[in-house]
Every structure is written in C-alpha cells, then in structure tokens.
Amino acid sequence: MSLTRRKFLLLLAAVGLSTTYSFASDPTLAVIVHPDVEVKQLSDVELESIFLTERRYWSGTRPIIPFNLAPRSEERALFDRVVLRMEPEAIARYWLDRRVRSGNPPPRQAPDPMTVGRLVAKLPGAIGYIPESFVTHEVRVLARIRNGKVLAP
C-alpha cells in the first residue's frame, strides 16, 4: 500500500467513514420460518425489528421465536451487517446497552445452521437464517439475503 493511500484510509477512518464492504463473495442466506407461520414475506425493516426483539409477536398473541447464530460465525456477521446494519462489535455493544436498560433480551443463539434449521422446523413461530444450501422441506423461506440485500423468497 502506498503511503498516500494509507494516509487516505486513515483520514477516512478518522472522520468515521470506512470503505464499502463487498458482499460479492458471501453466501446466500435464507430466512426460514416454521411452516405454520402465516406470513408470506418479510422486508428488511421487519427482519430488523424481529432480530432486535422489538417485534415479538407474529400477529395477535402468537410469539415469535427468533434464533441467531453464534457471533463468531460468518453467517451471523453477514446477517447483522445486511439486516441490522451493524458490525460485530457494534451489535455486541447494542445488546450490552440493552441489558443495562432492562430492554427485551436478545434472540436465542444456536451453535450452527443445522441446529437452526431443525429448531425452526420443530418450534411453531420460530424464525432463523441459514445458508441457502441448508434449507430443507421442513421449513419455509420468507426472504433471501444475497449481495448485501434482503430479497423476496
């Protein structure tokens, strides 16, 4: 890296900007729900509200059970970056602040996509996200996350 480019990046960092993250090499994620969930599609804003546990019911009194992947996983970082628009450190900070304020607790964590797929298939009202290739016929896809965007299923 030339000295000039390094200075430029430092300057960008100093003013709080950063170079744009490239999503080109990231896997496609599928947002999956239990087949009993009546909703047919979810927007990025709705997903954000569910995975920040602000929205906790599908409709009426039917609870939403969201599952996150572990913070170290690539898929979790990608999901947080696209849907919640936060980097891993920012999201960890977000939940810490939420705890001190006694806000709603975060979604439960599942250790791997396979477990998320199985839990979502088992629990009515459950929702999670997994790499597209993990999707089985036991769950329904409500959205896809590809190239840094939330797309219709």
């Binding site: 572990a70 913070p71 170290r72 960890a92 810490l96 975060p106 439960r108 599942a110 250790p111």
Partner: peptide
C-alpha cells in the same frame, strides 16, 4: 466459550 456474553445460547 463461543457464545456471546450478552446473548443467551439455546
């Protein structure tokens, strides 16, 4: 040890 300190695991 892989879980977040601020998020409950399953």
């Amino acid at each position: 040890a892989e879980a977040s300190a601020f998020e409950p695991g399953v």
